[in-house]
């Protein structure tokens, strides 16, 4: 059998913000970088994100957040991931993320942060780096 190990990514938008163009464009860029992207769409609850990541056995959960609630959302999700035994899944975050919040996100266990304005190349390099 031919063995292929592709990076599987769940792209999700938690909560109430309704802008998913960014998430879709990033999904497309990841596709073009050879990754398999599960796109779960808008308005996802954290529980939906956890269950989806479980069922799809993804390597990465990518959250797109523009609501300003990235700190509490990530904190809660990381706790839930630990409770569900999903510690081996990397959490990455993109969207409207102020640079001063990045250290705190990393501190709580977010593997990488890609704020708005970053290039696709940097996102893909950053993601591949997680698996070196």
């Amino acid at each position: 059998m031919e063995t292929t190990n592709k990076i599987r990514v769940l792209i999700a938008k938690p909560g109430l913000d309704g802008h998913d163009k960014g998430a879709k464009i990033v999904a497309l860029a990841l596709r073009d970088a050879g990754m398999e992207v599960i796109y779960s769409g808008l308005h996802q609850t954290l529980n939906q994100i956890i269950q989806t990541a479980t069922q799809e056995a993804v390597d990465v959960i990518g959250l797109s957040i523009m609501s300003g609630a990235h700190l509490p959302i990530c904190k809660r999700l990381i706790t839930m991931m630990k409770e569900q035994g999903l510690d081996d899944i990397r959490l990455i975050v993109g969207g409207v993320i102020p640079y001063q919040d990045i250290p705190e996100l990393k501190e709580m266990g977010v593997a990488a942060v890609f704020p708005g304005g970053i290039s696709f190349e940097d996102i893909i390099t950053g993601m591949n780096k997680l698996f070196e």
């Binding site: 592709k6 999904a27 497309l28 990841l30 596709r31 073009d32 970088a33 050879g34 990754m35 398999e36 992207v37 599960i38 796109y39 779960s40 769409g41 996802q44 609850t45 529980n47 939906q48 269950q51 989806t52 069922q55 799809e56």
Partner: peptide, 15 residues
Amino acid sequence: GAILGDRLRMQRHAT
């Protein structure tokens, strides 16, 4: 690569 978007329509059953 791929974009897997079928389950988007089924997400109400995710939990």
